[in-house]
Amino acid sequence: ESFSDEAMMKKGLEIFNETAACAACHVLKAAGSEGNIGPNLDTVTMTVESVKEMVTYGLGVMPAFGEGEILTKEEIEIVSQYVVNVANK
């Protein structure tokens, strides 16, 4: 893996656990997260596109991280790539 992939994964983990606090509500083994509000991300079928859409617009109690300007477009892209890459691993 290239350095940029590694850097991106690290950045994705940081957004997941810290910037966006996805970890507070979701299980994702690879990130060490145990939140139990939203779906366990190791059990969901997803694509980068579907994650991006969900993160941007939210659903129910999940905030609209894009519309609400909590995350930038770039951050949404990175965290979505990260989640799809590490889920169920």
């Binding site: 145990e34 139990n36 905030p63």
Partner: peptide
């Protein structure tokens, strides 16, 4: 994080 995301639980439910 709460300041950033504005929804974070006070206590986090155990899986």
């Amino acid at each position: 994080v709460a300041a950033t995301a504005s929804f974070v639980p006070i206590t986090i439910a155990k899986a």
